[in-house]
């Protein structure tokens, strides 16, 4: 969606026309849902927050400043809403990142003889992700789905950025064994 088209949608919303919101919904539902899902990690939570996101956009359309880059504007709001939810209801997830224990080896199916580049089995992406430990899944979701930078992930999870990047690299290595590599 172009900036002008988005501005027109906002104008329609301000006039009480729901079609403006529907057009934004059609254009960005996947994008918003993916960002939110990447942070909260649960389908039910992602659906609730995504719904709240579009309702909030309707309520606060007058706050949008034209020309500021609507896609980034939408992504920022979606991330913030998801992170607020995380802080309220997923405190244990965030706390797990501050613990010193290392569960990287858990669910590790690869034998020591396999090389990093060797594909041991072709599985669906979600199944491959599920093979990672929770901390690696969180970082992959934030990095790939929510398109967050390492710095943002580090700040959100309250862990050093070096730790974030290290965990991310380890997760990518594992996924490579399942036939997936980063672009």
């Amino acid at each position: 969606m172009t900036e002008a088209a988005f501005d027109a949608c906002i104008a329609a919303i301000l006039n009480g026309n729901k079609q403006g919101l529907k057009d934004i919904y059609d254009a960005y539902l996947d994008y918003i849902y993916r960002i939110i899902y990447g942070i909260v990690g649960r389908r039910e939570d992602a659906e609730d927050i995504t719904s709240e996101f579009f309702i909030k956009l309707w309520q606060q359309a007058d706050r949008y400043k034209s020309g500021s880059g609507h896609k980034g504007y939408l992504a920022t709001i979606a991330r913030n809403m998801a992170l607020d939810h995380m802080r309220k209801y997923k405190k244990e997830v965030l706390d797990s990142f501050t613990k010193e224990d290392d569960d990287d080896v858990v669910n590790e199916p690869v034998s020591s003889s396999d090389t990093e580049s060797q594909v041991i089995e072709n599985i669906a992406i979600k199944e491959a992700i599920s093979k990672l430990n929770p901390k690696e899944q969180q970082i992959i979701n934030m990095k790939v789905l929510s398109e967050m930078t390492f710095a943002e992930i580090s700040e959100t999870l309250r862990v050093p950025m070096g730790t974030v990047t290290w965990r991310y690299r380890e997760a990518v290595k594992k996924l490579r064994r399942y036939g997936y590599e980063e672009s």
Partner: peptide
């Protein structure tokens, strides 16, 4: 090898429910 980001985003998009 499949593209991690592309595959993962498409998969999530396929799972996106209709919330309208």
């Amino acid at each position: 090898m499949k593209n991690l980001e592309k595959e993962y985003k498409e998969q999530i998009s396929l799972e996106t429910p209709d919330l309208w």
